[in-house]
């Protein structure tokens, strides 16, 4: 029996919230593909500590976890879906692009919007084929600016600032527009932490980090991503204010549940 089997057994045996979290952390540290289905399973337990550890582990494993995470999105367990989106946001795999665009602008969970906005800035743009890259980057730019200007939760706007900061070195043509938005919000965002993060982003971008591409290790169906992007565009044209409306509706439903 290998170490990893032992760690998986420890996960199955865990009988308290703390021991489960510890078991998940230990398994996550292996960064093994074999751990993926077991970490995925933890996302549907109602245990935030263990779920955070599982998400961290899945992010560490990276692109190989993406197909599992995408399949989770089709299921009906909302909590597990939210954690899966957070893991996708941390990995930066292009296959997560369309999910993150939708989640950052319209999900009713603050933590999902927060993670998605950051995730849009972490996408591995150097993997995109040139003809798709710019289309996708324009979508991401619009989504992040929408979130930064419209989201009513400070932490989502804060997150959008970090997303834009990470995004700009990959798409310099957007610099003037983003800086204009930041200058405006430096004076007008009501939350000091958001304004501070804008000032920090501006300072960081004076010396933008060198982009160090990682080799593409996944098989990506670019046609499918393009098709989903176009479908998203079409839907937007039909219902121009869709994201905000949807969130308002979702919020009303949640409030009534309280």
């Amino acid at each position: 029996m290998t170490d990893i089997d032992e760690l998986i057994r420890a996960l199955d045996r865990a009988d308290s919230a703390d021991s489960l979290t510890e078991a998940v952390k230990a398994l996550a540290q292996t960064r093994s593909v074999k751990a993926i289905p077991h970490l995925m399973q933890v996302l549907s337990f109602n245990n935030p500590g263990a779920a955070v550890a599982a998400v961290d582990g899945l992010i560490q494993i990276g692109v190989e976890a993406v197909p599992y995470l995408l399949s989770q999105l089709d299921r009906h367990n909302y909590t597990a879906r939210a954690w899966a989106i957070r893991a996708l946001a941390g990995i930066g795999d292009p296959r997560g692009l369309v999910t993150l665009l939708g989640a950052s602008t319209a999900d009713f969970s603050v933590s999902v919007r927060r993670a998605s906005a950051r995730g849009l800035g972490l996408l591995k743009w150097y993997w995109f084929p040139p003809q798709l890259r710019e289309i996708a980057q324009l979508e991401v730019l619009e989504a992040l600016l929408f979130v930064l200007e419209q989201d009513e939760e400070w932490v989502v706007r804060y997150s959008a600032v970090t997303g834009l900061e990470a995004f700009l070195p990959h798409y310099p043509p957007a610099t003037a527009r983003v800086q204009a938005c930041w200058q405006h919000l430096l004076l007008h965002d009501p939350v000091p932490a958001v304004r501070a993060r804008i000032a920090y982003a501006q300072q960081n971008l004076l010396t933008p980090p060198a982009i160090q591409p990682e080799p593409l290790t996944a098989t990506i169906d670019w046609e499918e991503i393009l098709a989903r992007l176009s479908a998203r565009k079409r839907q937007e044209r039909l219902r121009p204010s869709d994201p905000a409306n949807y969130r308002q509706l979702a919020k009303t439903i949640v409030c009534q549940d309280l």
């Binding site: 603050v110 400070w154 932490v155 932490a193």
Partner: peptide, 20 residues
């Protein structure tokens, strides 16, 4: 989310006018 809220409190109570 709760840790971020606590850190926001720390940040905002130690912010100079030029933030950094």
């Amino acid at each position: 989310s709760l840790k971020l809220l606590a850190l926001k409190g720390i940040l905002e109570q130690n912010l100079p006018p030029d933030y950094l």
